[in-house]
Amino acid sequence: MKFSFAHNNLNVTDLDKSLRFYEEALGLKAARTKEASDGSFILAFLTDGVTPHQLELTWLRDWEKDSYDLGDNEFHLAFAVDDMEAAHAKHREMGCICFENEAMGIYFIADPDGYWIEIIPA
C-alpha cells in the first residue's frame, strides 16, 4: 500500500478574492471547480502547473462568520521560488508579507483569510 499527497484544503470566505490572490501572489490557477447541486459549497482546485499536488479552496454558502478561527496559525503551506528577490518585491508591493526571518532566508505571506504561506528559496 502506498499513499501520495493529492491536495490540501483551506476554507475561504470570499472565493473570487482568494482566487485572485493565489493567482497574483503565487501563479496558481484553478484546474477544476465543483459546485454542490444545491449551491451550498464551491470547491476550487488550484495548480501550480508543475507538481501534481493541488490546493483546494472551499467556499461554504452557509458560513455565517466573516473569518475562520485559525488558532495560533502554526500550520502553513510552503512554496519554493526560483527568484526570492523578485518574489519578495512582488509580495511587498502586494502588502501581504506578514513575517520575515532574515536569518533563515525565508518569509511568510498571508492570504485574504489570514492563512500563512511560507516562501523559501528553491
Rank of each mutant, 00 (worst) to 15 (best):
M104Q: 15
E102G: 04
L57E: 05
E64F: 00
A80V: 07
L19F: 06
C98L: 10
C96S: 13
P121L: 07
D82S: 15
N101E: 15
F99V: 09
I119W: 02
H53A: 05
P112E: 03
I42Y: 01
F108C: 09
L28P: 12
I97Y: 13
L19V: 02
H88E: 12
S67N: 07
S4W: 09
F3S: 11
A44P: 01
F108E: 10
K34V: 09
D82V: 13
M1V: 12
M104F: 12
W59F: 12
G71L: 15
D72C: 09
L77P: 04
Y107D: 04
H76N: 02
A78Y: 05
L26C: 12
E64G: 09
D48G: 02
A44M: 02
I120L: 08
E35A: 14
Y107L: 08
A89V: 10
H91E: 04
D69S: 08
P52F: 01
H76R: 03
L55D: 01
N73I: 13
G114E: 06
A86S: 07
C96A: 03
T51F: 01
I117E: 00
A6L: 06
A36T: 04
C98G: 12
F41K: 00
D72R: 11
D82C: 13
G71H: 13
T51R: 14
F45W: 13
H91Q: 08
E100F: 05
Y22T: 05
